[in-house]
């Protein structure tokens, strides 16, 4: 017989991770990476031990949110993630400079598996997984290997284009029996100088496919600067204060679900 031992490795690497939160959407550009980082940061500031895994292997961006550029170290057991900003973080962005990452077909499945089988997360309350757009290998790998401790947070914008893609994603999550903690509606509105609330992408929704919207995030013109230049998310105070509230709710929902 031949033997596959990757599952065993994965099991060991996440054995002390209590819960895994997959931040997904199906749609690109809706704020999955931003929300993943911000949720990780907000939850860790509330005293939890949090890891952040960038699973968008073709377009990793999580490395941009951290001041450090290096810091992995190897050991007998595997690869220790970078520790920065109170978070343990793994992104192929740290290892690929600005070069393309054109990993396709079965090699893609294998690197995704290796991302789970190599990284030593140690003790974590939450591992937040920033998902790529689309529904394919990543989603199935995560739901197959981590099912017992997995939940999903779904990100959308109020736009019908986004909602129609996200609806399919939620159906798939239901089919794969992944618990949806809630939907975060991003880029929902901004408040004009005159005080009026403007909703450029539409009115949005309160629920979708039976899952409720647990928070609406405003458009914050300071976000880009805060995240990638000063690397102080609190500088984007409109966005930060909203996501902090959502983070509390996400943690509460997860704790109730598993209790």
């Amino acid at each position: 017989m031949s033997i596959s031992f990757k599952e065993k490795l994965i099991e060991k690497k996440v054995s002390n991770v209590k819960k895994v939160i997959m931040v997904c959407s199906g749609k690109g550009g809706v704020g999955k990476s931003t929300v993943s980082y911000a949720l990780a940061k907000a939850i860790s500031e509330n005293g939890k031990r949090v890891g952040l895994l960038d699973l968008d292997i073709h377009g990793p961006v999580e490395q941009l949110f951290f001041k450090v550029k290096k810091g992995f170290s190897g050991s007998k057991e595997g690869l220790k993630p970078i520790f920065s900003d109170g978070l343990k973080v793994m992104s192929l962005g740290f290892l690929s400079k600005d070069e393309p990452i054109p990993i396709k077909g079965k090699y893609k499945e294998e690197i995704l598996e290796n991302l789970f089988s190599e990284v030593m997360w140690g003790d974590l309350d939450f591992l937040i997984v920033d998902m790529p757009p689309g529904v394919s290998d990543e989603l199935f790998l995560v739901s197959r290997t981590l099912s017992k401790k997995l939940v999903a947070v779904v990100v959308t914008t109020p736009s019908l284009l986004s909602l129609s893609v996200v609806r399919r994603m939620i159906k798939l999550l239901h089919q794969e029996k992944v618990k949806v903690v809630g939907i975060i509606e991003n880029l929902s509105y901004f408040t004009c100088r005159c005080g009026e609330q403007v909703k450029p992408f539409g009115e949005g929704v309160e629920e979708l496919e039976g899952e409720k919207v647990i928070g609406k995030l405003p458009i914050d013109p300071k976000l880009e600067e805060a995240l990638v230049f000063s690397k102080k998310i609190e500088n984007a105070s409109i966005f930060w204060s909203s996501i902090k509230k959502i983070a509390v709710e996400v943690v509460e929902e997860i704790e109730t679900y598993f209790s």
């Binding site: 190897g74 690869l79 690929s96 054109p102 990993i103 893609k108 690197i111 290796n114 991302l115």
Partner: peptide, 14 residues
Amino acid sequence: DLSIHYFPELVFTM
């Protein structure tokens, strides 16, 4: 070690 020690598929990048 080169990162391909942990992630051999990164050879497509390198």
